[in-house]
Each structure stands twice: as C-alpha cells, then as structure tokens.
C-alpha cells in the first residue's frame, strides 16, 4: 500500500503501533513491577521461598523481553515478543497452578501467583492479547486488500 495517504494508518500497520503501543505500555508497567518486586524479594528474604522468588525474577525478565520486542518491532522484535509471550503464558498457568497446589513453596505473592489475582488477573489475560496481536502480524500473511 505505498499510495495510502499518510494521515490514515491501517489498523495493523506495524507490530509497535496502534494496539501494539497500548500493549507496550502495559508490558512496560509489568516489566517494572515484576522485576522490582523480585529484586526486593531476593534482596531481603530470598531464603524464605527461593523457588517462588526465582520464578518471580524470571517473570520480570520475560516481561522486559516482551516490552523490548514490542518496542523494536519488525521481524526480530516479533520473534522476541512471540517467544516471551509464549513463556509468559506457560509461566502464568504453571505458577498459578503451583501457587494453589503448593502454598508452602509460594508463601509470598508473585506476579503470577494464583493466576495474577493480585494484579486483577491482567497477567492471565495479557499473554492471550499479546499472542493474538503478534499472530495478526505474522510475516507470511498474504498482502491485504488496499482500503
């Protein structure tokens, strides 16, 4: 679509515009809160629940990676975002289940504990929206009709 006027932007112009920019913001917030929380937990009382806090730190890193992927966009950004959103989905489901099944290993809340209930279940919903958005920007997509 080289002739489309610059004032109107297609809804799916790029990974890091439109809804992608909203996702970037939300992922950025979670990158900050998850890693800050993990840092405090590891620095002050790591021995209480090492497994939970290491997973907490992993969550922080995953959110940081997703934020970076969404920010840089393009093929590489898409691949980074796809990988981190997939890990995020597995992580929130795994940690969410473990935190309910084994409350002793997870005495302190992390971002993914109880499927992210401490964060309004946004950590549970976010990977689905993220993966859907990335899937919509898959590179093998046939050329869309010009509007």
């Amino acid at each position: 679509m080289p002739d489309s006027p610059p004032t109107t932007r297609p809804a799916d112009a790029a990974l890091n515009t439109g809804l992608g920019r909203v996702l970037l913001f939300v992922y950025g917030v979670f990158a900050l809160s998850a890693s800050a929380r993990a840092l405090v937990q590891i620095a002050t009382h790591f021995s209480e629940a090492p497994l939970a806090y290491l997973l907490s730190a992993l969550a922080g890193l995953v959110y940081i990676a997703a934020t970076v992927g969404l920010a840089i966009g393009g093929t590489r950004g898409r691949r980074i975002a796809l990988t981190s959103c997939s890990i995020e989905l597995v992580g929130v489901l795994m940690v969410g289940t473990l935190s309910i099944a084994d409350a002793i290993a997870f005495p302190d809340d992390t971002v993914w504990s109880r499927y992210g209930s401490g964060y309004g279940y946004v950590p549970l919903v976010l990977p689905f929206i993220g993966l859907w958005w990335i899937w919509r920007h898959r590179p093998t997509r046939p050329t869309p009709d010009a509007e």
Binding site: R9, T17, G18, L19, R21, V22, L24, F25, V26, G28, L32, S33, A36
Partner: peptide, 29 residues
C-alpha cells in the same frame, strides 16, 4: 519514582499514537 513517572510516560506514548489507542493508553494509565 514509578508514580511520578507514570503520567509523563503515558503522555509521551499517547502523543506518538494519534489514534483511538492513544486514548486507551491514557485510560489505562
């Protein structure tokens, strides 16, 4: 630090996004 930085970051992103999604960024913030 997070709290004081929040509105400026949202404002910065919303200015880059002159679509409905810009308003969504502000709303989420």
């Amino acid at each position: 630090i997070t709290t004081i930085a929040f509105a400026p970051v949202a404002l910065y992103l919303a200015k880059m996004e002159p679509t409905r999604w810009g308003n969504l960024i502000l709303g989420v913030a």
